[in-house]
Design a protein around this nucleic acid. Structure first.
Length: 439
RNA sequence: GUGAGUGUAGCUCAAUGGUAGAGCACCGGACUGUGGCUCCGGUCGUUGUGGGUUCGAGUCCCAUCACUCACCCCA
């Protein structure tokens, strides 16, 4: 027997009916983002390695140990994208989008790659739905940009039926704030160096702010006395954050200020946020984001403001509310026709000339349908159950004319309520079309 | 990179160290005009892989691979 293959570690096949849920989630994203004027960008799945090293940050775990990198046949170092913000900003600079009306609003949907040990909610190929607002709004405030992107995010999640998700919000300050705080934190922690974990000691050199979100209870205890980031904020950062909060309050968006929230990517400045969900085990963040003031410049562009988020689509779908899942299933209709002299009874619409089967007719009306010729109606019900069909339409000997050429009436059965109704074909079309509009 | 748990049919799982099984699913057939059954038959396995212990290993031991969960970190 030949070798059998399995999907590579940390990857998986998405199969029906689950893929229908994915398609619907993405359709909702596209619709909601369009309401806010965001347009799609598609960047390559791989980029020059240096883009991520510079953009995401040399000291981050992503760049330090999680990149899928390889040397191509031309000797270039290439990396499968571990996130998309850096690539979107690269595209902004490359295509001179600073010449477009500002700010530029973009969204993306697609796979990302990180070389990590897989576990619940974490894959080596995973999918993100993200949006970026890049460029200073002419006349508008930066806080308005932050609030807009958060409002869009909350609207999207709301349309997916999430009602109890809370946005965790914080500010990490601008460059000056962070430099001041970094000095204060290093000053505080250096005397306590011996009591820190090896990892945290290393971070003390490279990225001290990251020590803040340690999960180690001993370290958290040490940090209780640590200087607060808030105390190092410049007046401007302080005002900005207050402005963002005020705008969210005005828009009735629920959030909680979480002052230890730092986020793992180097490019964030000022506003950062995260959304966590129940039911995902240890990997409970379904969305992360924030503002980045220095990134475009770091990538060779003019100093440019940016703010964005990335939603983990795999995790989002994992916790998608059940009513939404049901709503997103394709409402197949099963038509059970009898074999009548070796053919399915046709139904000819008089005003359209050509005779065709009921199945064809339904498809013409945009109704997803499968036809079977079983005499045994029980098999049709069994099939309906397996395919999660919404309706079964019964067309047997009693429903067709003597010669088998015309359907006199049909029986429509709702597979959930088990209610049945006899009706003529025009009425059937009316009912099913109304149903598919509602879906 | 570190730790723990689990690997038996397409799926869910049995089998005291003693002939590898069941249910579901799938395929074929019988029956049935208010039915989501029932009945008959069929396909399906080098028990993840490789060693070892033993008269004999799905079962015990070692290694390896895979999966799962957790650490780290993130979506």
């Amino acid at each position: 027997m030949a070798k059998r293959f399995a999907a590579p570690k940390g990857t998986r096949d998405l199969l029906p009916p689950e893929t229908a849920i994915w398609a619907e989630v993405e359709a909702v994203a596209r619709r909601v983002f369009a309401l806010y004027g965001y347009r799609e960008i598609r960047t390559p799945l791989f980029e020059e390695t240096e883009l991520f090293a510079r953009g995401v940050g040399e000291t981050t775990d992503i760049v330090g140990k999680e990149m899928y990198s390889f040397t191509d046949k031309g000797g270039r170092s290439i990396t499968l994208r571990p996130e998309s913000t850096a690539a979107v900003c690269r595209a902004y600079v490359e295509h001179g989008m600073q010449q477009w009306p500002q700010p530029v609003r973009l969204f993306y949907i697609g796979p990302q790659f990180r070389y990590e040990r897989p576990q619940k909610g974490r894959y080596r190929q995973f999918h993100q739905i993200g949006a970026e607002l890049i460029g200073r709004p002419s006349g508008g405030s930066l806080a308005a940009a932050d609030a807009e992107i958060l409002a869009m995010l909350v609207r999207f999640l709301g349309e997916l039926g999430f009602s109890d998700l809370k946005v965790l919000l914080n500010t990490v300050g601008d460059a000056a704030s962070r430099a001041a705080y970094r000095a204060a934190l290093v000053g505080f922690l250096t005397p306590l160096r011996d009591r820190l974990s090896e990892e945290s000691r290393r971070r003390l050199e490279t990225n001290p702010l990251r020590i803040l979100d340690t999960k180690s209870p001993e370290e958290q205890e040490l940090l209780r006395e640590a200087p607060r980031l808030e105390a190092s904020l410049t007046g401007e950062s302080r005002r900005h954050f207050a402005d963002v909060c005020a705008r969210l309050d005005a828009a009735a968006i629920r959030y909680g200020v979480e002052d230890k929230l730092v986020r793992g990517l180097d490019y964030y400045t000022n506003t950062v946020f995260e959304i966590v969900a129940e039911g995902l085990g240890a990997q409970n963040a379904i969305c992360g984001g924030g503002a980045y003031e220095g990134l475009i410049e770091e990538l060779g562009g003019p100093p440019t403001y940016g703010v964005g988020f990335a939603i983990g689509e795999d995790r989002l779908i994992e916790v998608l509310p059940e009513p939404t899942r049901r709503r997103f299933r394709i409402p197949y209709v099963i038509v059970r026709g009898v074999a009548w002299e070796n053919r399915i009874p046709t139904f000819a619409f008089e005003d359209q000339g050509l005779p065709r089967t009921l199945v064809d007719l339904l498809r013409e009306k945009g109704i997803p349908v499968l036809g079977y010729e079983w005499k045994d109606s029980k098999r049709a019900f069994s099939m309906a159950e397996h395919l999660e069909a919404r309706y079964v339409v019964m067309v047997g000997e009693n429903e067709v004319s003597e010669d088998g050429a015309h359907i006199k009436e049909v029986v429509l059965r709702d597979t959930e309520t088990r209610q049945e109704e006899r009706m003529a074909v025009p009425e059937l079309l009316e009912r099913l079309r109304a149903e598919s509009r509602g879906a």
